[in-house]
Amino acid sequence: MHNNIIEVRGVSKSFKKFKRGDSLLDSLKSLFYREFETVAALKNVNFEVKKGEILGYLGPNGAGKSTMIKIMCGIIEPDSGTITALNLIPSKDREKYVKDIGAVFGQKSSLWPDLPAIDTFRLNKEIYKISDKDYKKRLDELVNLLEVKEIIKSPVRNLSFGERMKCEFIASLLHSPKILFLDEPTVGVDVVAKQNIRNFIKKINKESGVTVILTTHDVGDVESLCDRIIILDKGIHVYEGSIPLLKKKYLSYKELIVYFENETKNIKIPNCEVVESEPFKATLRVNISNTSMSQAIQNLMEKYKVEDIDIKEETIESIIGRIYKSGKK
């Protein structure tokens, strides 16, 4: 409890949306009369975030992730429930609270597009009242870590997406925040830049102890960064725990990729489903809730002449996709 940097208790949030029909007549009707529906974005959400952890906050589109992030940032208030972060109420103590948080939104840029990123950094220095000495030290540190020394003096509109994201990170970390909110920070970024950004996040989390809350659709981000994940669907938490626990709880199958010595057809192994079959190769899906891998392999070796075997686990992406679809806890 004492190690919690954020505590969310019973938070709910709804929005009013007006219903629009498809036809022209519906559009004209809407001039004079509108029907509204209330959409619950969050329903009685409870969780804590420990100091220094990297928490992945996942969910399908429209699950309520961004709403929760905005509540945690103090941008909007919940309809009910309480949230405390850094021992403050984000929406009520906004000015005091945001001094110690940073945020990178993949879809919204805080950089001035026609000016070099360094100008935004200087402005942030004034906004966060960073001393000259601390600013220089921190800026040098971050610029070297992200290897952007050459580009921070070019107009932002001339930078690639990856370069812009790196500059966004610098802008959000100059004031050494205690919590960093990352809302889809790698969207649209190439593979190399993505890897650099992930390494960077791990490094700053380790070195400066900043708590990171990350929303992402990129499973690679989740697997490489998150100590723990929360999966949200239709405003409700459907899973909370680590990645290994997620696998242990939800992994339903593993795959055997089998290479045969001879041409092999009509493969039949108990508790195994043939996913793909070629004359000298087959992919078998093993239902691990009914049998063990060792049993399945033993059955296979007894019946067929096998040259080689690869074992593949169900991917995290597939597990999460199943959870999204079922809303299971």
């Binding site: 940032c73 941008i75 000015e95 005091k96 945020a103 879809q107 919204k108 906004i127």
Partner: peptide
């Protein structure tokens, strides 16, 4: 309208 007002609310300055 475009949601970038969030970025203003995230700064520790009197609104």
């Amino acid at each position: 309208k475009d949601g970038t007002f969030d970025l203003i609310l995230l700064k520790p300055v009197n609104i």
